[in-house]
Amino acid sequence: MVETGFYWSLLLSSAFDVKRSDFRELVIHHVVTIGLLWLSWAINMVRVGTLVLLSHDISDILLAAGKLFRHGRTWVKTTNVLFVLFLISWILLRLGYFPFVVLRTALLDAPTFIQPSYRWQNIFQRPFVPRIILAMLLCLQVLHLFWTFLIARTVVKTVTAGQAEDVRSDSEDDDRTESKKKD
């Protein structure tokens, strides 16, 4: 319930935040996460919901800590260490653990927690709710791949430029850039 409230606050506050190039993807992520949290609780797939939260929160904590130290501007080494830890956790958890453990668990093991005799041998003849959960989990995986591409661009930019920069553009920065070009 706490995590659901947290994601509701992120979704609502995103309307007032600076719009970045991945704004739509971020909103989709928050909506899907809220849906997964609610459905996992409603149909007793709490174990899968917990695995999803754990696989996401570790990377999110490291990313938030790195951003916090980066804004301090005097903690360069700490920021770099946190970014490397974030990168490692992202790859291991969101590109490894999430698809190969969480998705597999949701597909093969979780249905037995809903009803012991339940099997997904022909998924398209089964109830709608498990299919929507799988669709939302797959949506998260697609978002993970999208953000991995952005992270890879940040890593390349960091290695070539020597300083980590957010490759997502702010809409305000885009507007200022366009008005400078017009002048």
Rank of each mutant, 00 (worst) to 15 (best):
F83S: 09
L140E: 08
F146D: 02
L93I: 01
R70Y: 13
V18E: 15
V46L: 09
L11R: 06
K180W: 09
R94M: 05
L63Q: 12
W41G: 07
M136K: 00
D57F: 13
P130R: 06
W147E: 06
I61P: 01
R168Q: 11
L95R: 03
E178W: 08
L26N: 01
W75I: 04
L92Q: 00
L62C: 03
Q141P: 00
F100S: 04
F113S: 05
H30Y: 14
I28L: 09
L54D: 01
A110E: 12
V31R: 06
F128T: 14
T4Q: 14
D17W: 13
S55Q: 00
T50H: 11
T105L: 01
S179T: 12
F113W: 08
F69H: 08
L39C: 14
V46I: 09
V102L: 03
H29F: 05
V101E: 07
K19E: 06
D57H: 08
L39A: 14
F128P: 09
F100G: 03
A15P: 00
F100C: 05
D57V: 04
G162D: 08
G162W: 04
V167A: 07
N80P: 00
S171Y: 12
F69Q: 05
L51V: 03
F149R: 06
D17H: 15
Q141H: 01
L10W: 03
N122M: 04
L150P: 00
G49A: 06
D173T: 14
K19G: 02
W38F: 15
Y7W: 14
E25S: 13
T33R: 07
S169N: 10
G35F: 13
L37V: 03
M45R: 11
H29E: 10
D57L: 15
I28Q: 01
R131W: 10
V52L: 04
Y7G: 04
I88K: 01
A64G: 01
H30P: 01
L68P: 00
T112I: 05
W147C: 07
H56L: 10
H30E: 07
S55N: 01
R73I: 12
T177C: 04
A161H: 08
T79H: 09
L39W: 12
A106Y: 10
T78G: 01
L51R: 00
R20Q: 02
V81Q: 04
A152D: 00
A152H: 01
W147M: 02
H29T: 05
S179I: 13
L85S: 09
L93C: 03
R47Y: 11
L36S: 02
S13K: 03
L62F: 08
A42E: 09
R94I: 07
V18T: 14
G66S: 15
S21C: 11
N44Y: 07
E25L: 13
I43Q: 04
I88P: 03
I123L: 15
H56M: 10
F23P: 05
D17A: 15
Q163I: 14
P130N: 09
H144D: 06
D175C: 04
W75R: 11
T105S: 07
I114F: 13
R47K: 10
V102C: 10
F98K: 08
V18K: 07
A135M: 11
D174A: 12
R119G: 02
W41T: 06
R73V: 13
V31W: 09
A106Q: 15
K181Q: 12
R153Y: 03
